[in-house]
Design a protein around this nucleic acid. Structure first.
Lengths: 223, 223
DNA sequence: TAGATTGTTAATCGATTAACAATC
DNA sequence: TAGATTGTTAATCGATTAACAATC
């Protein structure tokens, strides 16, 4: 994750964010192993999939509990199940989507990629009047004005912003003012928000624009 | 960035990866400021947009040069231009897209979101025969078998993988065997690759699955 | 049991921050 | 000039890794 952008010192827990960000990676590796019928793995094997030492994996895993089989390693299944539970991926969380255009559709596709339906899109909105009434994922796109009412009446936990950059801040404000503290933002603008709000900027540019640095470097080194 | 996944100790440079990952964030802030007609900013103001101290911003910026106006701050325009150049965003880089389905379309939409056309999709492929011949972004989707030839004959630098998980490794191997060292992966599977390959896993699940941990925590705290 | 791997502590490494002289 | 902010060094903080006793 591109760290930081706005203040997200969201620490109501004692698990360091660096560790928390590695846990989903472990989960994917465990899934892969499970598909290959591997029953038991160990920190050394897991480390071959990542840029970390086995000792770090062992340390990370102690945050979620002690599931190691001494002298053997870890049961893939047990570890996977516990990781999922620990990360809250065994539950389903209601979200609202704001932005029903191209970006919104892409956002939905990407979010729905994962098998376990952890993120459930409960309603969709758009700031643009001529988007209202269209459909996304069989849901009617509603007027942004009605977002507040939905947030007040339904058990929504997460807001997904997929608007154009100039709507991002307005939308984020509505969300935060209606006790939404978790925001996934696909737009290229990062809104300023109170520190207690956990904001994830998924704009891929953010992640990919440091790649070109290396590309440029290697070109310079050649010449 | 969710760190690591496969080994990508790609350090042909002396700028730490943590710093490199913050530079695109600075760039976005500078763009925002420029849109608001702000001509000069300073490390204190920039820090209000992020979870870092002003001194860190100053330190980060020294990696790209000394553009500060002593006693004044930084010219938004000068800093922005230099950052862009430093990151290689003033150039255009040819890419190939593999995967022309839903995920591929989403990938393309997201990549094209950014104004500056840094990433140019030069050709598209798909492992599935019944996708061949269809079109994505006005380009004809080609058979995966022809990927190798394209890589041999054209100046492609980056591979974008947007296949289903079970094709990811195969596709990645073809890319790497044809001297592609930069891979952007939208699929949910992270291929094992040589250390010198720079792989960015943009699977949003990876970024979002630590959010549910906090969500679960705050629910537990309530009860 | 011997061998292997965990869980955990202590040592190392690197990143962040505070402080301040240099500069406009 | 006085005031402000940079660039940079030194101090602090935290994360990674090595080492090893405990355990199966």
């Amino acid at each position: 994750m591109p760290k930081g952008f706005p203040k997200t010192n969201f620490l109501n827990s004692d698990v360091p964010e660096v560790v928390l960000n590695r846990l989903p990676i472990y989960l994917r590796i465990l899934n892969q192993l499970q598909q290959q019928q591997v029953k038991v793995t160990n920190s050394k094997e897991l480390a071959t999939y990542m840029t970390v030492e086995p000792s770090q994996i062992r340390k990370d895993l102690t945050y979620i509990g002690r599931f190691g089989l001494n002298g053997k390693g870890y049961s893939v299944k047990t570890l996977k199940n516990n990781l999922q539970k620990f990360l809250g991926l065994d539950a389903s969380w209601n979200t609202v989507l704001i932005g029903g255009g191209r970006l919104g559709k892409s956002a939905v596709d990407l979010i729905n990629q994962q098998k376990n339906k952890t993120f459930r899109i409960a309603a969709a909105f758009d700031p643009s009047p001529n988007m209202v009434g269209k459909r996304i994922m069989r849901m009617r796109i509603q007027n942004l004005k009605d977002l507040e009412r939905t947030l007040k009446t339904r058990n929504i936990k997460i807001g997904i912003i997929a608007t154009s950059n100039n709507s991002t801040q307005v939308v984020a404000n509505i969300l935060v003012n209606n006790r939404i503290n978790y925001i996934i933002n696909f737009s290229g603008f990062s809104p300023k928000l109170p520190e207690y709000v956990l904001l994830k900027n998924l704009d891929p540019g953010l992640q990919v624009e440091s790649m070109t640095y290396h590309l440029r470097q290697s070109r310079l080194n050649k010449g």
